[in-house]
Design a protein around this nucleic acid. Structure first.
Lengths: 214, 214
DNA sequence: ATTAAGTTTAACCATTTGGTTAATTTCAGA
DNA sequence: TCTGAAATTAACCAAATGGTTAAACTTAAT
């Protein structure tokens, strides 16, 4: 990094190396977790010297935190934007569900990665939740409003949200088990299952919770 | 271990040490995973010398496999016995759900522990599934029969089972996150949630899937 | 070309960690 | 009480691992 005229300039290779490290670290950490990951493996995968990892991120933990912070944002899809989009409640839920299915299809290790860290260091999780301004109250309030207006049946809005999360996330978190239990580990079958999943979850929501659409 | 008259006798302390090791190992592995666990910590918690771990279980991996095998059985509650119990389908589902909620309430780390291993070593999982004669086909067939007999709506029985698993397991797998998101990390509130969970899941099943009861 | 800053590397280091070994203790049976 | 096998311990070891260091290399502005 170069400072000049009070302005900060990045040298050509800086962004590239940092990026390569983060990409490699994401892969390795996602697959093996903090404890299972090896700095040497990350360096190899990034195609650079191990010392570079420490040069850019100081320590294994710091690097991990960076990777986790990025991943955690993906785990919490843009519910706000979906809510604010002036669409019907059914459409809002559909778009949230779709966001999840897409992210997890593209990042198979993400659900487990987050779930592990949730247990490994809840404090870290809590700090991060505050940092990114995660706002569950907004979702709860959104659902409560729909209930008051008679679009959703009377119920515990928290439970409703937890059910959506469960139905979206769990099948991916347990994919290798489910795939073996249900389809003899045939990937194609699981993909078919995911393709129908959005409609499937929406059907449950509509049957159980939605009274009328706006 | 002592062999005498072709019969095998256990010396007084053998069962005790082995048991102490397994209990300690279960605690540590459940909380920290295979990579995060330390043999020394297990030894300390068991109140014995580290060499004893190897004396009884040869290696960290062997010890882990033993712990995992036991835990995995708990993860798959006695669906068979519930099915064979000649009760109505609703009662069968209720008893399966209750089994899960009970096990996870008593073993908070269990869901995550299994989910991690599912991704860490699917081969190990597959081997174990065969060893304990895990029989998903029976469950699928059970649901299919209920459909044919008009007790359940026409649907994909696999999806139905996955939904039950999701609704039962996920809230525990993500408990620290959910607890913070929904109830400011108040344990009492989560316990209340779990208390109502059985009825809550049954309500979904009945509303979405059950046509008539036997 | 020189400089000064950031970048990259190879070699190195201290600690941790799973695992071993050899000696000692315990204990049931003769 | 003597014996032999199993149980237990303390000390030890080699490998792995996260991290450091000092020197060499790039690069952009003067």
């Amino acid at each position: 990094m170069v400072k000049l005229n009070g302005q900060v300039y990045l040298m050509m290779n800086e962004k590239i190396s940092e990026e390569k490290i983060l990409n490699a670290a994401r892969e390795v950490f996602m697959e093996k977790g903090l404890d299972g990951a090896r700095m040497q493996e990350i360096a190899n995968k990034a195609g650079i010297n191990k010392a570079m990892l420490h040069y850019y991120f100081r320590s294994k933990n710091k690097l991990f935190e960076k990777v986790f912070a990025e991943a955690f944002k993906d785990f919490w899809p843009q519910m706000e934007s979906a809510i604010l989009s002036e669409r019907s409640s059914a459409e809002v839920f559909a778009s949230i569900i779709e966001a999840y299915l897409t992210v997890f299809t593209q990042n198979p290790y993400l659900p487990n990665f987050i779930l592990s860290e949730i247990h490994r260091s809840p404090e870290h999780l809590e700090r991060l939740m505050k940092e990114i301004g995660l706002n569950p109250g907004m979702m709860i309030h959104f659902v409560d409003t729909l209930i008051e207006n008679g679009f959703l049946k009377s119920m515990d809005s928290r439970e409703f949200l937890i059910n959506i999360l469960s139905l979206c996330i769990f099948p991916f978190a347990a994919r290798p088990l489910i795939s073996r239990l249900m389809w003899e580990n045939d990937d194609k079958e699981f993909e078919l299952f995911v393709q129908g999943r959005k409609a499937s979850i929406m059907h449950i929501i509509e049957t159980c919770y939605i009274i009328k659409s706006e």
